[in-house]
Simulated scan of single mutants.
Amino acid sequence: MLLLAGTSEAGKSSAGEYLAALGARRVKIRTVLVRLTSGRQAYHEGMETREDFGYDEFVSKLLELPDDGETPLAVESFIDAALATTVKRTWPAPCAIIFITAPELVRIRRLAQTRGLTADEAQRIIRRKDERKRVHEQIPAWRAIADHWVDNTADIITFRARLREAFQTIQTSSGGIQP
């Protein structure tokens, strides 16, 4: 399994799309979190979910996803380093964390171009997202646990090459088999 994390607007969704094109089963973290919504509500990973759900519950919900037994899973977009650490440690097959980042100016330029925004509008969106997700305060934790640190500053070919390398690593270590 590959866990995708990163700074806001750095390319996590693009990474998920590309990994799916390579053959991974792409799952947005929201799909799993929706299964944890009974009980008192709390904000987690960009959505309302149950307060104080156990990380082991999250892993159980991942294991309940439909599975063909051979296709590696790519889960995007983790914002909680502790949750990612628990998933990696308890997952019953090889698991790697990919952290995707790019300098803020690159992210601003790309978001502005993609959505037709001014640079100021894009900057406000990115900074609000990074703050809400506590991205910068967790960078040291992500550096400590990430198996692949992908700087998405360069061109798409370089970005995809790094993702393909991570995908091949997980396939080689697991033989392509996932629980």
Rank of each mutant, 00 (worst) to 15 (best):
L4M: 05
G69Y: 07
T153A: 13
A112M: 11
T169G: 13
H148G: 03
F99E: 08
H148C: 07
R107H: 01
L105K: 12
R35Q: 14
T101K: 09
G54P: 00
Y55M: 04
P179C: 01
I139G: 09
I170R: 11
A102S: 02
F159G: 01
Q178P: 02
A20S: 15
K129A: 14
A5I: 03
A24C: 15
R35C: 05
A154D: 13
T169Q: 13
A119P: 05
Q178C: 12
R40W: 08
C95A: 10
L22Y: 10
T31Q: 13
I145N: 06
G54C: 06
A144M: 12
I145E: 09
G46M: 04
E57T: 00
V106E: 04
A154P: 01
H148D: 08
L63C: 08
T90F: 04
R115Q: 12
T153K: 03
G6N: 00
R25E: 14
V59A: 04
S60K: 14
F58D: 03
L4K: 10
G16Q: 10
V75S: 02
I157D: 15
F159T: 00
A161H: 08
A166T: 03
Y55L: 07
W149Y: 14
L3D: 03
A141G: 08
P103I: 04
R50H: 09
E48C: 04
I108P: 03
D147F: 14
R143K: 15
P179D: 08
V32K: 07
C95L: 06
I139Q: 12
R89P: 00
A112C: 12
A119M: 11
P92L: 03
A161I: 00
T169V: 06
A15D: 04
I126Y: 09
G54V: 03
W149M: 15
A122F: 10
I97A: 11
A24Y: 14
F53V: 07
P92S: 03
G116M: 03
Q113G: 12
T172V: 05
D120Q: 14
P92K: 08
L62R: 05
F167W: 15
Q123C: 11
V87R: 00
I139S: 09
V75Y: 02
P140L: 12
I79W: 02
L62W: 01
R128F: 07
I98F: 01
Q113R: 14
T31A: 14
R124C: 10
W91R: 08
T86G: 02
I126M: 13
G46L: 04
E76T: 05
A112T: 11
R115W: 07
I139K: 13
A42V: 02
G46H: 07
K129E: 14
G6E: 03
I100Q: 02
G11F: 00
D155G: 08
G16E: 04
Q113F: 09
I100L: 11
F53K: 07
G176Q: 05
